[in-house]
Design a protein around this nucleic acid. Structure first.
Lengths: 160, 160
DNA sequence: GAGTCTATCGCAACATGTTGCAATAAGTAT
DNA sequence: ATACTTATTGCAACATGTTGCGATAGACTC
């Protein structure tokens, strides 16, 4: 029966993983996972807290953050830090990618894992360091902003 | 005379730059620059605040952070965000380098500008994005930790 | 030196996370 | 169904930055 459900299991996987570790399935966690899944793409910690509180006003930030940490431990979610140091979360299902943040126009660009692979390899060769792709967040100028500033102005002040 | 003074000018340069912009030279700024200069290498915002307050207990965090922002605007200092999102400052004089933070042992490794240059170029070629070397902070595993985990365990949980 | 203009400062409140602890409640055994 | 164990929650306090505002004090003119 119902073998057709497409992405079956997010909740079920979580329940199973928790049980295995002697941890508990609670309504708060249900809500937080739902919110995260609904926040397709990325969402900051503060945004997630707010959305969870819409569903359940009794939820507190500490619970939300602790649950997000738990989801990371279980490998179901990941987070990285934006250019201002704030946290951004997304489900692990998302395709792996690095984040490129332009300090000129503020745009967020992604770099696919396939594109990034040789670059990570180059870093490893040069330094022995194996970088995490997904936790990688670069700051700089996108093609357009770089062009706009001319090739002779590699660095200029910008808010941030 | 006295053309021999080696790194003459940090304070003097700052005074001149401020004057030019119609801004003011104050004792607080003097202290903050001194502290930053003495914190050879890197220091977090909180550390700098604390050290400044040792010199002048009346100084407040807002003043320290605002001054650090100012120093960045003037191009005398830079900051980047560590793996936990906290700020780290250093004087611009420091040799340009990227930061590699190991999530295995917590060590901080640096990647020289010369080593990084071809990597940045590769990123630019692949994506059109010009990354800032100095604001670049990678997370991953250093050579030793990567080896310790074996080649088949690319990712494992770790406090971060 | 006194007066003026306004950059800077200190304070207080806020934003985003984190942590310790006592109360609650999930899961299990009786 | 009841009791028990302990993971989880909510609260309150803290850590690190940020922001608005009125008071202070640089720097400049007279």
């Amino acid at each position: 029966m119902a073998t057709e459900r497409p992405s079956l299991g997010l909740t079920e996987r979580l329940q199973a993983a928790l049980k295995e570790r002697g941890q508990r399935w609670t309504e708060q966690r249900q809500i937080i996972v739902e919110v995260l899944a609904a926040s397709d793409g990325h969402a900051t910690g503060a945004e997630l807290v707010e959305r969870v509180r819409e569903q359940d006003p009794s939820a507190t930030p500490s619970t939300v953050y602790r649950t997000l940490d738990l989801l990371e431990e279980l490998g179901l979610a990941r987070h990285h830090h934006g250019p201002d140091g704030r946290e951004t979360y997304h489900l692990e299902e998302t395709v792996e990618h690095a984040h490129l943040h332009c300090r000129g126009c503020g745009a967020e660009q992604e770099m696919d894992a396939v594109v990034a692979a040789p670059i990570l390899k180059a870093i490893a060769t040069a330094t022995g360091f194996s970088a995490d792709l997904d936790h990688l967040s670069l700051h700089g100028l996108c093609r357009r902003c770089a062009a706009a500033r001319g090739p002779s102005t590699p660095r200029a002040k910008a808010g941030e």
